[in-house]
């Protein structure tokens, strides 16, 4: 499945479909974990909800105030991991990262925000299991989307 992923580097039919009908967009009412990837400079964020049972990602949802690239990547990524194990999802992060070699710096930052939000949702689960009262885990992005074109 990972081999079929096409990054949003053009307006092919798959990308158009993800833009017009983002998959898994929204929130979960009773998530196991909630993560936030936040770009403090621009105020852009991705919030990621996961429902995990027996180490399996039952459902995931995401929402963002960011650009269409973020929406497309979030839509693709949530489709990739749905129904898979947490371990698979973690390996998917590395594989999707490899694919980002061909996209613009802005698109890579958008993708990182989706991925960091996902990781933050897993950290949130761990923290809750350790007894912490954490509504969501927040990861502040190292890089901002406000980068120069290269």
């Amino acid at each position: 499945m990972l081999e079929d992923v096409v990054m949003p580097n053009g307006m092919n039919p798959e990308v158009l479909e993800h833009i017009m009908n983002p998959q898994n967009y929204g929130k979960l009412e009773s998530p196991s974990g909630v993560g936030l990837g936040l770009d403090e400079k621009t105020g852009e964020y991705v919030v990621f909800y996961v429902e995990v049972k027996d180490e399996q990602l039952i459902r995931s949802r995401f929402a963002t105030n960011g650009c269409q690239d973020t929406v497309v990547i979030g839509s693709m990524f949530t489709q990739m991991i749905e129904g898979k194990t947490v371990e698979y999802a973690k390996s998917a992060l590395a594989k999707i990262d490899e694919k980002l070699g061909v996209v613009t710096p802005q698109q890579k930052i958008c993708a990182n925000m989706v991925l960091e939000a996902f990781i933050a949702s897993l950290i949130n689960i761990q923290n809750i299991q350790s007894g912490a009262k954490e509504e969501m885990h927040v990861t502040k992005m190292q890089e901002s989307c406000e980068v120069e074109d290269v």
């Binding site: 017009m20 929402a63 105030n65």
Partner: peptide
């Protein structure tokens, strides 16, 4: 031919 609804706003927005 690409009319579509804008996506929903999350409350953080």
């Amino acid at each position: 031919g690409i009319l579509t609804l804008p996506r929903e706003l999350h409350e953080m927005t």
